[in-house]
Simulated assay, not measured.
Amino acid sequence: MPNPIGVIRTVTIPVPLFTHLKNCQRHIQQTEGRKLTNSHTLAVILRQHRDIVGPALQRTAQVSP
């Protein structure tokens, strides 16, 4: 994704979710050999969620009355 315009927000997340974020970040860094910021890691996770869960949500929305 070419550098899209970002939105800056301050959010609070529970420690276990932050730990998950850092574990994902370490995994990506190890497997892909690239450094990621917390923001980039969150973007990767959300993109994966969109690509995997999004189509199912769309199908559900189309079926709902």
Results as ranks from 00 to 15, higher is better:
residue 10 T to H: 02
residue 16 P to G: 06
residue 60 T to E: 07
residue 46 L to G: 00
residue 43 A to E: 11
residue 24 C to F: 07
residue 36 L to N: 06
residue 35 K to N: 06
residue 4 P to D: 04
residue 13 I to N: 02
residue 53 V to K: 06
residue 34 R to H: 05
residue 54 G to S: 04
residue 52 I to E: 13
residue 14 P to C: 07
residue 55 P to F: 14
residue 40 H to P: 01
residue 22 K to S: 08
residue 54 G to W: 06
residue 14 P to Q: 08
residue 8 I to L: 14
residue 16 P to Q: 05
residue 24 C to P: 01
residue 29 Q to W: 01
residue 7 V to N: 07
residue 34 R to Y: 06
residue 53 V to C: 08
residue 22 K to Y: 02
residue 49 H to V: 10
residue 15 V to W: 02
residue 11 V to I: 15
residue 62 Q to V: 02
residue 4 P to K: 06
residue 64 S to N: 10
residue 53 V to I: 15
residue 1 M to L: 05
residue 46 L to E: 05
residue 51 D to N: 14
residue 48 Q to W: 11
residue 47 R to G: 05
residue 20 H to N: 01
residue 10 T to V: 10
residue 7 V to H: 08
residue 36 L to G: 01
residue 58 Q to D: 10
residue 20 H to C: 04
residue 19 T to D: 09
residue 14 P to I: 09
residue 12 T to V: 15
residue 25 Q to I: 08
residue 7 V to E: 10
residue 14 P to M: 07
residue 28 I to T: 09
residue 7 V to L: 14
residue 5 I to F: 10
residue 64 S to G: 03
residue 5 I to Q: 06
residue 38 N to A: 15
residue 17 L to D: 06
residue 51 D to R: 08
residue 49 H to I: 14
residue 25 Q to P: 05
residue 39 S to D: 13
residue 2 P to M: 15
residue 55 P to N: 09
residue 35 K to S: 11
residue 37 T to K: 04
residue 40 H to S: 13
residue 29 Q to G: 05
residue 41 T to N: 02
residue 57 L to I: 10
residue 34 R to P: 01
